[in-house]
Computed example of a mutant assay.
Amino acid sequence: MTKIGIVLGSTRPGRNGEAVARWVYEQAAQRTDAEFELVDLADFKLPLLDEVYPPSMGQYDQPHTQDWAQKVDSFDGFVIVTPEYNRSVPGALKNAIDFLYAEWTNKAVGFVSYGATGGTRAVEHLRLIAGELQMADVRTQVALSLFNDFENFSDFKPLDVQRATLTTMLDQVISWTNALAPLRAS
């Protein structure tokens, strides 16, 4: 069965991302075409990148990197849930991505973002990063507005249209993940 990791890309205390990631997981878990797992970056407590060798060499010395690599490698594709911080990706998410290389390669990725402008600028940066990692990013993005999909900027109440967008994005992630399977096998 295809296995998709839903990565919660913020470690900030009081983050909106927990509610968003749970919503993504609850919607995804109703599907029968893949297995889904919620992965919280906060659980891995990754320091700033502290490996001697570049990730492309796959020589991880630190136990936290080895644990992170094992988790990421266990998935066939990903959905990344990210806020937008200062027109870009949260530092914790970028750092977690930068720890690894081959574990991301030849896997599909979709994005669920949130922020004042729906987190779209963070996803623009993530798409560039995904390209460098040889990931296939899908077109459809769930862009959640702090003004429309949250009450008081903190109580997550997505508009009905977001569910349909999430379904389309998941369809694409699963299709691309399955299409890339021969590349991962070689």
Rank of each mutant, 00 (worst) to 15 (best):
D67T: 08
F78R: 02
A29S: 08
L166Q: 13
V161E: 12
S154H: 15
M57W: 06
Q172N: 14
V72F: 09
F147R: 13
M57R: 11
M135V: 02
K107H: 06
E151I: 15
V173T: 02
A122M: 01
V20S: 02
G115P: 04
L180H: 10
F36M: 10
F99C: 03
D50N: 14
Q59G: 12
G131N: 08
A143G: 06
L8V: 10
E84L: 00
G58H: 08
T177Y: 11
R121I: 00
S175L: 06
D33C: 14
L49F: 05
W23C: 12
L146H: 04
F153M: 15
R139P: 12
G118D: 00
V52M: 09
P13N: 14
R127H: 00
R15A: 15
R31F: 04
F150Q: 07
V79D: 15
L159P: 03
Q172H: 02
A185Y: 06
I4T: 15
T11G: 08
G115L: 02
Q66S: 11
S56E: 15
A42H: 08
R121Q: 01
G5E: 12
A69R: 07
P55R: 05
G9P: 15
G17L: 02
D73L: 14
P54C: 10
G9T: 00
Q62P: 12
T2M: 11
D98I: 04
L128S: 13
R163S: 12
P55W: 07
Q162N: 10
T167N: 03
P13G: 09
Q141T: 04
D61P: 05
D137P: 13
L180I: 13
A108P: 13
V112P: 02
V52G: 12
L126V: 00
G131P: 14
D33L: 05
A108F: 02
E103H: 10
S186P: 14
W23D: 11
E84A: 01
T165L: 14
S56M: 14
R22V: 09
Q172E: 09
L38K: 05
V39Y: 03
F44E: 02
S74G: 07
S145K: 01
P158I: 10
G110C: 13
Y101Q: 06
F150D: 07
V39W: 04
V142M: 03
M169F: 08
F99R: 09
L128Q: 05
L183S: 06
S145Q: 09
L48R: 07
L170F: 06
S154Y: 01
F111K: 01
V72G: 05
Q70R: 15
L170N: 05
